[in-house]
Amino acid sequence: MTAFLEKKGVLAVLLAAAGALMAFVSLRPFPGNGGSLLLAFLFFIGVVEGCIAAAAAGATVNARWVGSVRKELLSVTPLLLVASFLLLLLIPFVDSYPWAGRPGIWLRKDFFIGRNLAFLLLAYVTARRFAAAPADGGGTKVRAAWYLLVFVVSQSLTAFDLVMSLEYPWVSALLGGYFFIEALYGGFAVSALLYLLLHGRPPAGNAPGTRSDLSDLSILMFGFSLMWAGLFFAQFLTIWYGNIPEEVGFIARRVSASPLRELCVAVLFLLFFIPFPALLATRAKSNPYVVSAAALSILSGILVERYVFLAPVVRFSPGALAIDFACLLVLFVAVVYKARVFR
């Protein structure tokens, strides 16, 4: 695989091939293809932007652990271009949004796609500028801050436009913040997994690449599990307590029937009730098995949650879903592997 990836232009060919396959699958007029692509896009964009945001957040506060995985985390930057392409593939699907065809300023198809695309491309540009800066250079923090700013807007738009407007006029002001915090949470989970893949079972000590770095990452995941739970509670308690029909319907549609009800509970477990107790003990924070289990739980939780958000209003095609996820996974692994080998 190393020799294959070493060849010039292989990555570009891989990107083009994956893009072409996903375009072929998505543009076929079968019901569920668009929904599958949307789910893949939502998960993928959260993880990719979250990885870069984790590196950027670490850079702004001089976090020591970033040095161990910085290159791999930033290697996913080109995938933001793939995400932009996926957004373009979603254009036909936008017609199935409930507001489509009605007059409006904000919810108008061209502006809808245009602003999301603009911020994805801006995220790519700012991420590239951040990735190009030396890890300990003078302007790195400024570039990281710029990326984080664009990341917040981009994730908020993803939440408000691609998810919330699916159930227009349902409104939750917290959804944007919920999405970017969750993306960052996912970014830390990927960082922990990459760290373990790169360093295996790290030795004890305080030098870079030691158990202390893994412990710092675990503390971040632990802290974010609490923060995620707080946001989850704040969002859904307010909606449930208010009991306004147009708001509470969002929860009712998801908890009133199987299997979504069970999946809702699974989300809670995967994103809070598993990582929180697992990472509570000091020793567990530097145990590779516990940390990798917690990180996988977090990533699965994000995926299941995105599914739960879409499921009541969007149709999925299992075949298209499998192809989309397989393509994106291959691309993700390829760019990270290449960055690792040619470190």
Binding site: L174, L175, G177, T238
Partner: peptide, 19 residues
């Protein structure tokens, strides 16, 4: 924040109030 957000007064009832 929930002193306000839990009521259904316009301008108060919003999920973002807690954070």
């Amino acid at each position: 924040s929930w002193d306000f957000a839990m009521s259904v007064v316009p301008g108060w009832h919003t999920t973002i109030f807690a954070p």
